[in-house]
């Protein structure tokens, strides 16, 4: 009986206990992320200001030298530019291909077809990126499948050089990252009330116009979240470009990998990493802002 008419003090004590418990639950995760996500990035940030001697040993002095090198050399500026446009191209192609794929997923005539499409979409996400990229080597190599088929069909007489260029990198990127674009767009599409499309048609808009004026704007949330993931993955990976593009492609992640593991200029590698991080961060934040603006407009 006493429990039913608790005093306000007892009630806030109960709330305090619940909150305390929630904080206790949250703490281990926070400590882990603090120690192994926040601290390493602080360390990286600090190292990026260190100087090196001619043997790449870190000196105890701090300066902006590493950043000056990144932002004044044509080589690195070209690299930043290439990294961005490869990532943007990958993102745009992924989004464009994702729409018909998402449409099929949403309109699949039955459960079996839908599950099959889901398996095709999700299984690459669960397979190591090395293996997905390896498939493209098998396909595009000099003695790879594409060349073999083209030769057999007598369309070409000599094998084409399909690997070791940025085109190969983009193709592999698109195939590796497409599911990240399809899934959120399909979710957005599935949430559209079919009556909105009917309303559009009853007002005289054909299918194509209904897509441009109703379906596309309403899938912007899915499109933006897909674009954010694809862009940040495409701007930050080095495995795929290394394996299908080769070591010499002017891509920032590739250069960072080599700078650190081969040249061992740690501060320069750190400065390039911070640059990449900020570039990706700014662009992703921009896309996030568009996303929130749009959602704010629709839902308040």
């Amino acid at each position: 009986m006493a429990r039913t008419n608790r005093t306000p003090g007892a009630e806030s004590a109960g709330k305090y206990r619940r909150n305390l418990f929630s904080w206790v639950m949250l703490t281990p995760g926070l400590i882990f992320l603090g120690a192994f996500l926040a601290v390493p990035f602080l360390l990286l940030f600090v190292i990026s200001f260190r100087d090196v001697d001619n043997w790449m040993n870190m000196l105890p002095t701090y300066s902006l030298n590493q950043y000056l090198e990144v932002f004044t050399s044509r080589f690195y500026l070209h690299m930043i530019w290439t990294t961005l446009w490869v990532a943007v191209a990958t993102t745009v192609i992924c989004i464009a291909l994702a729409y018909p794929a998402a449409y099929l997923l949403v309109r699949a005539p039955n459960r079996t077809v839908r599950t099959a499409l889901y398996v095709i979409l999700v299984s690459p996400l669960l397979t190591s990126v090395v293996i997905r990229t390896f498939a493209w080597i098998v396909l595009l190599a000099q003695n790879g499948l594409v060349n073999e088929v083209l030769m057999k069909l007598a369309l070409i007489s000599e094998p084409l050089r399909l690997l070791w260029n940025l085109g190969a990198v983009i193709i592999a990127y698109v195939q590796v990252m497409l599911p990240f674009a399809v899934l959120p767009i399909a979710t957005s599409m599935g949430e559209i009330d079919p009556r909105l499309r009917q309303a559009s048609m009853s007002l005289g808009a054909g299918r194509l116009r209904t897509f441009w004026k109703v379906t596309l704007p309403l899938t912007i949330p899915g499109m933006m979240s897909g674009a954010i993931i694809v862009f940040s993955l495409a701007a930050g990976s080095y495995i795929t470009p290394l394996l299908v593009g080769g070591r010499l492609q002017p891509l920032l992640p590739l250069a960072i990998y080599q700078q650190v593991l081969q040249v061992a200029n740690l501060p320069l590698g750190a400065a390039m990493s911070i640059t990449l991080l900020i570039l990706v961060g700014v662009l992703v934040a921009g896309m996030g802002l568009i996303l929130r603006r749009w959602e704010g407009r629709m839902h308040g």
């Binding site: 009556r195 009853s202 007002l203 109703v214």
Partner: peptide, 19 residues
């Protein structure tokens, strides 16, 4: 096709375009 019929339709949930 519905878009060639010249009809006006009002839906149960109004179906206003939210954007």
């Amino acid at each position: 096709a519905p878009y060639r019929r010249d009809i006006g339709m009002v839906f149960q949930n109004y179906a206003l375009f939210p954007h």
